[in-house]
């Protein structure tokens, strides 16, 4: 279990982490999302002690990370695997030697190393590339090698620093699938840092959104999505929809229960109300499907429709409100 309380870190006058509070349960896939410079990578590096923090506490299984001596810190890192955006493989070593490197550093027996590597390449799905050099591999294959290397010493935690950001969407998806499998099979806690929403959606159970060194929102991924907080829309950005001049624009959020029903057309029929559909999408999450629909309704049927949606537990938001608040915020910033 990873627990951060009042964690702070700054470089000179720049606060990279200001007061982070976070709990990650064992066995979870946890996502940290934010724009670049939000401090998510720094937070991740604090977890395995690659970076130190100035004040506050960060414990992993009850061990205070900053309190470890050099030697203890090395032992501690053994328990935590890490993968990187640029894969960080040694180009002059074969896949086999790359995966063997951590075990060699910890003086594992040759026989054990050999056995472990064969298991690992099977697990990550590259058994035929054992003696290839990294530059003969595709990006996805390189990341698989890096995952095998990170898992070589049976870590309890796997940290992923933008692990799919350098990959094309399909390859990224396959890496996410692999990480999910690893989480299911081995029960390893996985912490994912990313700026890609798709990664969070398909991998994480819980997420935290970071902004300027602060966690501005956290919770189960579906809840965060259904909340549609400002932090989330800041991150995704509002789609450039063209809204009709009249009527009210609503965003209808379809949760796990409602996403697979024909709730919107039902509503139209039952209320005998017409509305325009401006846009919509459904997205697959780790365990469910969530969707959103943007509709334009006449002002006079506003009460009727919102009432109907409330009765059927459909979450909705008035888009004008959202735009206004974000505009106000922009103005606040300017002031």
């Amino acid at each position: 279990m990873i627990k951060a309380t009042n964690l702070k870190k700054s470089y000179d006058s720049l606060n990279v982490l200001s007061d982070i509070n976070l709990t990650i349960q064992a066995g979870q896939v946890y996502g940290l999302i934010g724009r670049s410079g939000a401090g998510k990578s720094t937070l991740l590096r604090c977890i395995n002690g690659l970076e130190s923090y100035d004040s506050g506490s960060l414990t992993v299984d009850g061990i205070e990370v900053n309190s470890l001596s050099d030697k203890e810190a090395r032992e501690f890192k053994r328990e935590i695997g890490m993968i990187f955006q640029q894969f960080s493989l040694l180009n002059r070593l074969s896949v086999y030697e790359n995966i063997a490197l951590p075990m060699k550093c910890w003086n594992y027996k040759k026989k054990h190393i050999d056995k472990r590597i064969k298991e690992l390449v099977e697990m990550v799905g590259i058994p035929d590339k054992l003696y290839a050099r990294p530059n003969e591999l595709s990006g996805g294959q390189k990341q698989r090698v890096a995952i095998a290397r990170a898992l070589s010493m049976d870590p309890k935690i796997l940290l992923c620093d933008e692990a799919t950001s350098a990959l094309d969407p399909n390859t990224a998806k396959s890496i996410i699938t692999l990480l999910n499998e690893i989480n299911n099979q081995l029960g390893i806690t996985i912490v994912v840092v990313t700026h890609q929403m798709s990664v969070l959606r398909s991998a994480c159970e819980e997420i935290s959104i970071m902004e300027n060194g602060l966690i501005v929102e956290s919770g189960p991924v579906e809840t965060v999505f259904l909340n549609q907080s400002r932090a989330l829309s800041n991150l995704i950005g509002n789609k450039d929809l063209i809204f009709p001049k009249s009527g009210v624009n609503l965003k209808v959020l379809l949760s796990r229960e409602t996403a697979e029903k024909t709730i919107v057309t039902q509503m139209s029929r039952e209320l005998d109300a017409d509305f325009m559909i401006l846009g919509g999408e459904t997205e697959r999450y780790r365990n469910s499907v969530l969707g959103s629909l943007i509709i334009n309704i006449p002002v006079e049927s506003f009460a009727k429709i919102t009432n109907y949606m409330d009765c059927h537990h459909v979450v909705w938001k008035n888009i004008e409100d959202e735009i206004n608040t974000s505009n106000e915020l922009e103005e606040d910033k300017r002031v």
Binding site: K77, R78, F84, Q86, S88, P102, A150, L159
Partner: peptide
Amino acid sequence: DKQLIEAARSFGAS
């Protein structure tokens, strides 16, 4: 590459 060094640090190399 500095990232290689960081990766090595991440698995506890001296």
